[in-house]
């Protein structure tokens, strides 16, 4: 019980379970989970939300969201979410996945979910590396960036160029809301929170496919301290993957609060 003149200003979101996560110290997955949890609470949709997360660091996400949840095969969350949403059109279906999943093995599934204008919301966490398997080169690994499978740095002549998923998906007429945000400081965390809310509102208004790409860190596999990784995120990742609104369909403009 709170004393009379006290009020709750900060608490664990109802949409999150009160457990210790498997995420590494300094990783921003926890921040992003919290933002999604807060927004689900704010919109009052916990009971009608179904989450889908595939393989990668997101693989245990079902332990952390207090909603119905499905664990999908690697890359296949958009397809699995499509099946769920089509048989439960009145439910809110979101996916949560990393860059190895969404931008490599699941490229076809994400592009076609967007092309169909599937009424689902995608949270795409881009930290430029395969985290769960221990730091291999991802499709989003920056040129020159060292990983365990690009030990001499990513050589674009040999290993190809990084994919800019938000820009690519913004070309899809079926996509209604495609933005990129970052969580490297409180201001940007707030921007990300607003985008998460907008994306879910797009779905609640049956307005089509929404995706928030969230630039994130990986101190463990980048071989950095938490603070160093935040600086890398700000100084290297953000310039390479510019933040911004890549597609906001006319029909959803009124749903967005700046």
């Amino acid at each position: 019980m709170l004393a009379k003149n006290m009020q709750v200003v900060y608490k664990m979101p109802d949409a999150l379970t009160d457990v210790v996560t498997h995420y590494c110290p300094g990783c921003t997955h926890g921040v992003i989970h919290r933002l999604i949890g807060e927004v689900i609470d704010e919109l009052g949709i916990r009971e009608k939300t179904i989450g889908v997360a595939p393989v990668g660091c997101s693989v245990f996400a079902y332990n952390y969201f207090d909603t119905d949840f499905a664990e999908a095969a690697h890359g296949r969350a958009p397809a699995m979410a499509t099946g769920l949403k089509r048989v439960h059109p009145d439910r809110v279906v979101f996916t949560y996945h990393g860059d190895g999943d969404l931008a490599a093995i699941g490229t076809a599934e994400i592009i076609h979910a967007a092309a169909r204008g599937e009424n689902i919301t995608v949270f795409f966490v881009n930290n430029a590396v395969y985290g769960m398997t221990g730091g291999q080169m991802a499709p989003t690994t920056l040129p020159g960036m060292t990983t365990t499978s690009s030990p001499r740095g990513r050589d674009v002549e040999l290993q190809g160029f990084p994919l800019h998923m938000a820009e690519m998906l913004a070309q899809m007429p079926g996509a209604s809301y495609i933005v990129r945000r970052s969580v490297h400081d409180p201001g940007h965390i707030n921007q990300t929170r607003k985008a998460i809310k907008a994306a879910l509102k797009v779905q609640l208004n049956q307005a089509g496919f929404s995706l928030v790409e969230i630039l994130s860190n990986c101190p463990t596999n980048w071989g950095m301290s938490a603070m160093e990784s935040m600086n890398f995120l700000k100084e290297q990742m953000v310039p390479f993957y510019p933040l911004g609104d890549y597609r906001i369909a006319d029909a959803v403009k009124s749903l967005i609060v700046k």
Binding site: I50, V52, A70, A72, A73, R76, A79, M80, A81, T82, G83, L84, K85, R86, V87, H88, A108, E109, I111, H112, R116
Partner: peptide, 25 residues
């Protein structure tokens, strides 16, 4: 619900999702 998927890989995972949602699929 009828969807022509982008591949058999996607089709079976859509089936997986719809079945997880309790539909006859």
């Amino acid at each position: 619900v009828f969807i022509q998927a982008e591949s058999e890989v996607a089709a079976i995972n859509m089936v997986y999702g719809a079945a997880a949602g309790g539909a006859r699929v």
